[in-house]
């Protein structure tokens, strides 16, 4: 209790007298001298805002144009607008992948290693991203 009162007394003493110290003023030509130096500096690089080549409005117009060109005449015609040439895909049946992986096996150690490695890569990606972002932003 006594110690607190003591601290309060010193606090009150300091507050009373430090407040009386006058504010200092620099020389009359301080601002003009400073602004001359600033004008000689490189112009400030303001934050770069990236604008897309095609704006959202632009994409909407493109979409409408596609719809207009493709769907509208398509709806009105009874026969197809265009037809694909006939293609023979029967060669795919001749490809045989049976038994390709029958004799291959992966040990559990390899699996655990691969999983752990993947986890560490993911953690490092986040860490490095944050680290470089801090460097860029200062």
């Amino acid at each position: 209790m006594g110690e607190n009162k003591h601290i309060e007394e010193i606090h009150a003493f300091t507050k009373k007298y430090v407040k009386e110290i006058p504010t200092e003023t620099p020389s009359l030509d301080f601002t003009s001298n400073l602004m001359k130096k600033i004008e000689e500096l490189q112009p400030l690089k303001s934050t770069i805002t990236y604008k897309p080549l095609i704006s959202k409005k632009g994409w909407f117009i493109v979409f409408l144009a596609i719809v207009a060109v493709v769907l509208v005449p398509f709806k009105q015609r009874k026969e197809p607008l265009f037809s694909l040439p006939e293609m023979n895909f029967s060669f795919l049946e001749k490809l045989n992948f049976d038994g390709l992986l029958e004799n291959s096996s992966v040990s559990s150690t390899t699996l655990y290693l691969a999983l752990t490695f993947s986890v560490f890569v993911c953690i490092q990606l986040f860490y490095l991203k944050g680290h470089f972002e801090k460097q860029i932003n200062g």
């Binding site: 504010t23 200092e24 003023t25 620099p26 601002t31």
Partner: peptide, 8 residues
């Protein structure tokens, strides 16, 4: 605005 503050 802030020159006096900084200078003090």
């Amino acid at each position: 605005k802030y020159k006096d503050m900084v200078f003090t």
